[in-house]
Design a protein around this nucleic acid. Sequence first.
DNA 1: TTGTGAAAAGCTAACGGTTAGCGTTATCGT
DNA 2: ACGATAACGCTAACCGTTAGCTTTTCACAA
Lengths: 192, 192
Amino acid sequence: MTDQLGRRERKKAATRQAISNTALAMFLERGYDAVGIREVAEAADVAVTTVFAHFPSKEALVFDRDQGLQDRLVRAVSDRDPSRSAPDALREELHAMVREFTPSAASPFWQLVASSPDLLDYEAKMWQRHAEALSVAIAADFGRSAPIPADRALAYYVLGVFRLAREAADPAAAVDEIMDLIAAAWRAAPTG
Amino acid sequence: MTDQLGRRERKKAATRQAISNTALAMFLERGYDAVGIREVAEAADVAVTTVFAHFPSKEALVFDRDQGLQDRLVRAVSDRDPSRSAPDALREELHAMVREFTPSAASPFWQLVASSPDLLDYEAKMWQRHAEALSVAIAADFGRSAPIPADRALAYYVLGVFRLAREAADPAAAVDEIMDLIAAAWRAAPTG
DNA sequence: TTGTGAAAAGCTAACGGTTAGCGTTATCGT
DNA sequence: ACGATAACGCTAACCGTTAGCTTTTCACAA
């Protein structure tokens, strides 16, 4: 578990963890807007500048955990069983994701995110950052080496399912309803 | 032109115009980031608090002009010649909009917007604010009194065309390419 | 072991957008 | 003419964020 990391990098990672843990705990306890960066730094016993040395923004403190979630859709396309269509693989993955983050069984974490417009905006941009990667995977699925606008559009639509489904009364049903639209659009996309 | 407005409201409107005009001129001349709110207030000869009494944010100063642009897509659906399909009407409207704001013949105003991430974000949110209105119009087109997730998805897709087309090498071709996808999705949407 | 360079962390001070609190003036309805 | 209130102003601050510069801590080689 000591990972062959030098003392230096271990301490750096520890500082980062301490800041992130402290911040998340404070946000969950008192609310995102009610806790300032200066307070977080104070509680973690570091300087404000150190906080920003590890995290590019206040919002990034919150989302330090669920890294890797973003790549699930890309992998669902790229690493799928070749016998399945890409839209089918995406549909299943989206079902799983929505099941985890559905508002009824909402974890405190997602309630926190939902409580702040800043965090919702930041989350939306996190997804958009992966739109390009997903569009490349989709282009490859069509046999293209680079994405055309139609590929980017499909990626944009798939990434939107999560948001739209979360806001729907029945998220699981919404995933199917919307994926039916996307599957139809997929069939209409230029091939080769 | 005096509009039976009282002196009070005329003065208020005049102040608002003065602030907006001054700000936009300064932004265009020196760049959005290089001009601070305090400078704008100074140049317009008002207090900083007065600026924020008229505009909710610095970004809103820039977009005070092109109000009404947002409703074009909603009107394209609601007020169209009944002989045409909604996707066809939207396609034409989107072609017109992309023609006006294409980067080649970009007006200084749109160059200003493109120069600042803050302004691009704000613009994106302006569109999203109209997603609900467009989804209602689309639901009505299907004979529904309230939008279902599929309607919201279609609205989301149509609003995305503008952004995707602007980033494409050939914006006009991209509009057609993407609208073909949307038309296919439209056909797959639940009816009634 | 010691010296050296660099990464990590710290401090101070500020900037720019935004807001709260509170007073002042002008205008409106009666 | 008068009281209510909208519009505006001033001051002072808060908050996220960054620049500039110093100090601590480690890695590595002489």
